[in-house]
Amino acid sequence: MTAKPPKSGAARRQFIFDSAKMVCGVGMLGLGLGLYAKQSKALPALALRPPGALPEDDFLGACIRCGLCVRDCPYNTLELAKPETPVATGTPFFNARNIPCEMCDDIPCIKACPTGALDHSLTDINKAKMGVAVLIDHETCLNFLGLRCDVCYRVCPVIDKAITLDLQPNTRTGRHAMFLPTVHSEHCTGCGKCEKSCVLEEAAIRILPPKLAKGELGKHYRLGWDEKSKAGQSLIDESKMLDLPDRLPEGAVLPGHYDPASGHTESLRGMPGSEAGAIPSLPPGLGGKP
């Protein structure tokens, strides 16, 4: 590599300056490359990685861009990114609208991978998480318009688990049902067959990275009904439950509820949920009402 530091003072100075020149010049190149590397981690939302791919941050460190996954994919789904593609150069990806993943049982792309970029411990393709389908446009989806397209639901390899049709009343006609395709992310592999087969000019259902597709509850959130079913009973003593006043539309009466603005001064007792006279007739601190 670099020559040994020479003995004389002038030569030593020169050596230090030469080294400084290299460190600075190559450092600039390195800085540029590093920033480019950071940018390259921003995978476009519609570019999907093969099944078992590590999270993007890790993937770019593990993948050596050999293209073996591309070669062993029987459906030519995968391609290697070209320099002008907004995906890190040479890395494999697919676009579900072009060719979706056919979810081979033996997952040949993972088997072909010589690195850990595709997680070799993934042996059940149904557990793959290439992304999550999202019915992204409720305005153009034919089922949302009250029609029975159902194509995304029908082509889903995990039909009735990853996509179900949820019935809602069609308020436009007043007499029909709308069959709303509903994605259940715990079963969706992100294969993209729904996006591929969406009959619209632009797909109304698309595969997005889970990060974009999913909300996340606060870690401290507990769903009362879940906890209740887990415990087998209510977690609180319901007999001591306070029922606070409900504000109702003018003139409306809901038996069992107390509405200070309704003109009904007394809540009805003895209705379900108001046992043992636990409901105070007044909001606390407002004093008595005649």
Binding site: G34, S40, G61
Partner: peptide, 18 residues
């Protein structure tokens, strides 16, 4: 040397980007 250090810092196979 820079590509090795850079790969370690960025977690990306650095030289393969270009």
């Amino acid at each position: 040397g820079m590509t090795f250090i850079g790969s370690a810092i960025t977690g990306v196979v650095l030289w393969e980007l270009i």
